[in-house]
Design a protein around this nucleic acid. Sequence first.
DNA 1: CTAATTGCTCTAGTAGCTATAGCTTCAAGA
DNA 2: TCTTGAAGCTATAGCTACTAGAGCAATTAG
Lengths: 142, 142
Amino acid sequence: MLTIGKLGQAARVKVPTIRYYEQIGLLPEPDRSAGNQRLYPNTALDRLAFIRHARELGFPLEAIRELLGLSDHPDQSCAAADAIARSQLQAVRNRIARLKALEAELQRMLAQCASGTISDCRVIEVLGDHAHCAHDHGQDLT
Amino acid sequence: MLTIGKLGQAARVKVPTIRYYEQIGLLPEPDRSAGNQRLYPNTALDRLAFIRHARELGFPLEAIRELLGLSDHPDQSCAAADAIARSQLQAVRNRIARLKALEAELQRMLAQCASGTISDCRVIEVLGDHAHCAHDHGQDLT
DNA sequence: CTAATTGCTCTAGTAGCTATAGCTTCAAGA
DNA sequence: TCTTGAAGCTATAGCTACTAGAGCAATTAG
């Protein structure tokens, strides 16, 4: 049996985050000690590690909720899990593409900076006028 | 003089967002019409375009606030603006590096998926055990 | 036994908006 | 001139995924 602190240490997840996961239903409510403290079975560590790992890979909590649901029914096809991972991969690739465009733009902006006064600062000027842009970074918010 | 709707259209910024920017002090409170509606001078368009553009490049609102402060004093050195842009470039590069590691990991995960049942699904398995990872995507949250 | 640590609940805050409700004002057509 | 529909107003709440703090109770080490 693990206290919430030990569990957090073992899974490298902060204690308030564990309580938050419980609150939103990602982790089941554990039994309590006589003094009302949470006591986790060892299986909770697996589940929490799963969540942490998926978060590190950028999966949103709702996707993780689905994946956990799937892993609770090991007999079904894994097509759904595959689809979730695939869409996550797509999302990551999109983000990389957008960030690369931003990188190029920022680099260009800085290369032109004359380090003079604000009035001839390219950074300020470029930001003020989209026409200065080499790339079309349309609707992309980072 | 522009109504808030025209301004939003011209700058491609949604109306509630403009009001939000006013609320947090990024845009000055404009004059009002007899019927209490906001009326913007043309200069507001420049300022709003500046903000939108900087947001597209990933600058956080606080950095934009600083940049706007700088551009209000065109006689000073542009070193500060340069530094803000430089740190933004660094942040973008960090994000790219982290996302590339995630991309590789997700790709590897999917390549191994046998498309069988959940019980031998690599996606679920890899997520459950960090030891399966080729990369060390330590503390990186996307 | 005491002091330090850890745990508890509850509330509020973070970024950057977005959405809703319920109302008023404005502009254009009949 | 009247009317109708669009656009505007304020205020509040919601979104993601946590994080921080207050004020208290329980546990553990010495």
